[in-house]
Amino acid sequence: MSLIDDYVRYETRRQFFGRGKNVLGFAALTALMQQAGIRGADASDSEAAMKAVNHFAPKAKRVIYLHMVGGPSQIDLYDYKPEMDKYYDKDLPESIRNGQRLTGMTSGQSRFPIAPSKYKFQQHGKCGMWVSEMLPWTAKMVDDMCFIRSMHTEAINHEPAISFMQTGNQITGRPCLGSWVSYGLGSENSDLPTFVVLVAKPTNTEQIQAISARLWGSGYLP
């Protein structure tokens, strides 16, 4: 056995932590130096600071994200599906369900009829976006909005679907949307949180999702 192995083997706990304090000090100093280097000579110039850490210049200044749990179905708002009218009250084909398991709310049904939207749709704006009569004021602003209708998920229940919306995965523990935005844009003030989550508490506590508290973390991001 070498002299180094003997030294490590017989090192006391007091000696180990005595050496460890220097490691922690160097780690803290490195973090402070990196922060100072990112901000540059002029800490007030946040735009120059962001260019120093990103490979592209971010255009967004801030993001306000509203996750409206319990809102109307997209089929009744802006996801126009006129072909469904032809299949009204017909059973959902097995080729569509493809053996997907049922939720607790529908497991007791004897049949699964197709139910198209009962609201009228019209095209609005220069883009010709189809919007239902449920959103008369939103329909006037469609040219200034972005509608994403290409997303899909295998989740059939609320909790995994909400987790997928917030983190991109049905399994909890991944970085949330606020963490990714903060990671991409950075922060102008290290003394304040990079993103804030405001959660509305329902009057009926039974409606509180069990995993909601795990949807606002940074996961594996720094």
Rank of each mutant, 00 (worst) to 15 (best):
Leu3Pro: 01
Ile4Cys: 00
Asp5His: 08
Asp5Met: 05
Tyr10Asn: 11
Glu11Pro: 03
Glu11Ala: 12
Gln15Ala: 13
Gln15Trp: 02
Gly20His: 04
Gly25Phe: 10
Leu32Ser: 10
Ala36Asn: 12
Ile38Leu: 11
Ser44His: 12
Glu47Val: 13
Lys51Thr: 02
Arg62Ser: 14
Val63Lys: 05
Leu66Ile: 15
Met68Glu: 02
Val69Tyr: 03
Pro72Leu: 01
Gln74His: 15
Ile75Thr: 06
Tyr80Thr: 03
Tyr80Pro: 05
Glu83Lys: 12
Asp85Pro: 04
Tyr88Gln: 13
Leu92Phe: 09
Ser95Met: 04
Gly104Lys: 15
Thr106Met: 13
Ser107Phe: 00
Gly108Glu: 12
Gln109Met: 15
Ser110Ile: 09
Arg111Gly: 11
Phe112Trp: 11
Phe112Asn: 00
Phe112Met: 11
Lys118Val: 09
His124Asp: 07
Lys126Thr: 02
Val131Ala: 01
Ser132Trp: 06
Glu133Cys: 02
Met134Tyr: 02
Trp137Phe: 08
Asp143Gly: 06
Asp143Phe: 05
Phe147Tyr: 14
Ile148Leu: 15
Met151Ala: 15
His158Val: 00
Glu159Asp: 15
Pro160Gln: 08
Phe164Tyr: 09
Thr172Pro: 01
Arg174Trp: 00
Cys176Arg: 05
Ser179Asn: 00
Ser182Trp: 07
Ser182Tyr: 01
Ser187Pro: 05
Asn189Gln: 07
Asp191Phe: 10
Lys201Phe: 03
Thr203Ala: 03
Gln207Tyr: 08
Ala210Lys: 13
Gly217Asp: 11
Ser218Ile: 08
Tyr220Phe: 14
Leu221Asp: 10
